[in-house]
């Protein structure tokens, strides 16, 4: 075993409908993504990362928006701005997407609106509009996921119940 040279990396929790920024060696974590989508942005030159936990694709269907980070159309521009404020260059940013699952099974089609898929599609569209490439995705399916974003190397680890950690 190597002797511990560094302090344990700082873990920054990102809540539902929230976003946080962190620098190496911080790890940004968001727990239990279902139909929600986690969007990570990374500036490898600065080892600066941001993570957003969005719930819904489109804010324009709501007349009273209290938390813009809840929505893909508002939350992604907010995250990009926050990255820029911390010195990131738009041209260097790289994105990864996790989540957007369909958690429930059953025959009630009114409740199975596939919001997960719409979240993923909207997040992709917003990133494309901003000119940010998506390096990797772990989306869809029917499993809940926890997303762990390591700002020291840009790697995203995905934890699912009863499965091995997956790194993208």
């Amino acid at each position: 075993m190597e002797p511990a040279k560094f302090d344990r990396p700082v873990e920054i929790q990102v809540g539902i409908a929230d976003y946080k920024i962190g620098r190496e060696p911080a790890r940004l974590i968001t727990l239990g993504l279902g139909s929600c989508v986690g969007v990570s942005l990374y500036d490898p030159a600065l080892k600066l990362g941001g993570l957003l936990h969005l719930m819904l694709p489109d804010s324009t269907q709501f007349n009273n928006v209290t938390k813009p980070a809840k929505f893909a159309d508002l939350g992604i521009p907010l995250l990009i701005d926050e990255m820029k404020k911390n010195g990131a260059h738009l041209s260097r940013l790289q994105a990864k997407l996790v989540g957007g699952a369909q958690m429930f099974s059953g025959l009630d089609s009114k409740m199975i609106l596939n919001i997960g898929q719409r979240n993923v599609e909207k997040a992709r569209a917003m990133l494309r509009e901003a000119g940010i490439p998506i390096l990797a995705e772990e989306v869809g399916g029917n499993r809940g996921r926890t997303m762990i974003f390591d700002t020291s190397n840009g790697q995203v680890s995905i934890r699912m119940l009863g499965s091995k950690l997956k790194v993208i």
């Binding site: 539902i16 239990g32 279902g34 139909s35 699952a101 958690m103 429930f104 099974s105 926890t146 119940l161």
Partner: peptide, 11 residues
């Protein structure tokens, strides 16, 4: 659904 609480409830 049978999975993580956070994922199930928020969805």
């Amino acid at each position: 659904a049978f999975d993580m609480l956070g994922a199930v409830l928020t969805s």
